[in-house]
Amino acid sequence: MNRLVCSVCCGAACMLLLAGCSGWQSALDPKGPAAGELAWLIWFFTALCTVVWLLVMAVLILPLARRPAPVGDPLVLDAAAERGKMRIVVAALAATALILVGLTLLSYFANRTLAAIGSDAALTIRVTGHQWWWEVRYENDQPNRILTTANEIHIPAGEPVRLVVTSTDVIHSFWVPNLSGKLDLIPGHENVLDLKADKPGVYRGQCAEFCGAQHANMSTFIIAEPRPVFDAWLKDQLRPAAAPVSTEAQTGHDLFLKRPCVMCHKIGGTIAGGTVAPDLTHIASRRTLAAGTLAMSRGNLAAWIADPQGIKPGAHMPVVGLNGDELNAIVAYLEGLK
């Protein structure tokens, strides 16, 4: 019995040690000050809770080790022993209260630390949740430098960034565990999330509030880059879409504007001006398709356009019924939109 309990405890401890291993999208592998603060908090709470738990278990199990004594009269209680126990219980209660006060203060101060992260954020990004993708708008005082993109958020590494998050349909939640805790995107409300990535890198995030059929496939990537790389990226993204370079791509361009694609998507520099679906102006420069569902590749593009409902059932991208040549042409065009 005791051994079993021990081995369960050991197993649990081992698993916790392993916890740091899966780093991508893990709260335990912080890459920014907010997540760092929180990871510390998690470990501290966990350690403290483990100690408390072990103590309680010890008190529970130790009497079992004693030899069962003959059962006495259930109602005859030793008054002195009762008083002694009462003292112990009261002491334990006081200790509990003390720990709780400590933890409350700890979370209060952690909260203050988190609030201070973005106080000097130079970059404001507006993230709007849609079923089931993220619209990302880089705010700028000069309107023609406002950039709208989707699903992938580039940020300068080492700088605080302010995200203003909201939604136009249902409630979503923005969560990139490596960088920060989550915050809900709520229709009719605007929430502010400040985050900072210490080092360049790609951090995966995912919608954390159930938002319908494709809640599972609503991911995002935060790509932290050194400031110059970021600036270059921003500048590059502000260009209108690349012109098609091959005849096939040209055909694809024409088809794109003639077929249902044009009804929902935007490609800068063409008449395609949809806003209800992700902006495709530089789609080929992104890492993934369909809010992190598929890696960006020619094959995946074709697969996605040919049968989005097979890949992401319930998503708002319809099956449009293109023949093979049309599909290839459109893929060729989109592939060129770096």
Binding site: P260, M263, P318
Partner: peptide, 8 residues
């Protein structure tokens, strides 16, 4: 025609 898939 061609702009909206038939199902839609």
């Amino acid at each position: 025609r061609d702009k909206i898939p038939d199902d839609q």
